[in-house]
Design a protein around this nucleic acid. Sequence first.
DNA 1: TCGGTACGTTCGAAATTTCAGACGTTGTCT
DNA 2: AGACAACGTCTGAAATTTCGAACGTACCGA
Lengths: 255, 255
Amino acid sequence: MPRLTPALVRGLDILELFLDARAIDGYSAPEVATVTGLPRATVHELLATLVAKSYLRKEKVSGRFHLGLRVFQLGNAYGERIDLVTSGRLIAEEIAAECNETVNVGMLDGPDVVYMAKVESRQAVRMVSAVGRRLPASCTAVGKALIAFLSEAELEALYPSAAGLPSLTPRSIVDRAELLAQLAEIRRSGLAFEAGESTPDVSCAAAPVRDHRGAVVASVSVSVPDIRWGQRAPGEWADVARRGAQRLSSVLGAR
Amino acid sequence: MPRLTPALVRGLDILELFLDARAIDGYSAPEVATVTGLPRATVHELLATLVAKSYLRKEKVSGRFHLGLRVFQLGNAYGERIDLVTSGRLIAEEIAAECNETVNVGMLDGPDVVYMAKVESRQAVRMVSAVGRRLPASCTAVGKALIAFLSEAELEALYPSAAGLPSLTPRSIVDRAELLAQLAEIRRSGLAFEAGESTPDVSCAAAPVRDHRGAVVASVSVSVPDIRWGQRAPGEWADVARRGAQRLSSVLGAR
DNA sequence: TCGGTACGTTCGAAATTTCAGACGTTGTCT
DNA sequence: AGACAACGTCTGAAATTTCGAACGTACCGA
């Protein structure tokens, strides 16, 4: 593998600061400097470059920086080209219409889940996720349905035996043995469940999506507030997720 | 303005190659080298960096590069933060439901229009645009509704008196005087029209959207195949666009 | 099998960029 | 008002990165 280009790395690092939800108000140049630890002069040069290339926009009055049009264009170009996004959105809409609950399609990015498509239930319940957002995989049904199909080596790389697991709520799984047990069960049944582990008082069911080669590439989940979760048997919710995942799999050419 | 960082510029230039629709099959490293004119070794270093940072993904078998997850995340982060995208989508859906034609919300980026939201008519007619895509402003109703409100200096910068105008179809406006005349009329009436100037056999009506300070920041258009365009008076289509633009303006805090 | 070509990678000298420090400006506090 | 602090910009010397050239490999056609 060739060497990396530090200047580019630093520039992209700055860009990624803006992924954080805290960045709604943007960043000022000094803030970027302190957060990244880069010298003042360097930060100004990098920011000027990002602005010149429309990846950032400098607000005239406050002098704060915000994400620019170009990242929007690139993001949409990605979305257009990835079937998962296009087809996932379609199928999520079908399922949501059917059960009127929030439906998510996600894929794995390192130890995190990134949501590729999302349709909110009409009966709005605030959820943590949003398209493009990432959440620790072990805390979500979508994520567990994905990491369950990793090899042992990959799992070990993501969750070194020593360290603890990330946690979002008091009910998040923090015990590695417990996680492994659940993953085994998910592999067996082809279904993943979650009980308030990423958002309090919300339960989820998720099922894996396979591509044309049979590899698990994504998963589909239904998120249901506990108030309504009890109104049906867990198996019913799981069926909704499973049917969605199967439909998406066949769109992607599985079987 | 501080100096620019060439390494970063070059990296982002490479990224932007992938905006092009021709990039569906991705690019190989040698292709990137010839297109950009950069030395082979440099291209490999930059590509490796972009891959390491997940802005690109290298296909294992073919060795070709494609856009990566990170650009998707950034694009969505942008979309979440810009009211125009969120509210625009909402209002575009309302209008589309009302008239069952394709609705676009666009803003200006240099001499181009970038589409921020789009809802297709059920009666699908292939359109050139897609969210995130850009089209020459002078060829579209959305674009004309925007450049009409630029200052003379800005206009002159975008369309130097000498050179010709970009053109997408035989009906695109190529005469600068003709364009200026139309822009004056648009300023007067607050409405822009287009007759097959960006897509053959499709007509559009567009109206400007204003932000809380009264500045024109976007525009809303209805695109109608000529077969159906004649079924209503042009003023009726224009009204659809105008009402949408007004609703979006008030969401953005106009007046 | 054997040239030939195209490609990815490596290396180090040359060229460029980085960044500390100085300066001018703006805004704030006393 | 005056002093101080925070910030943006500029400069040039130091340090780093860039990229030409060479090497090894894979693939192709003869």
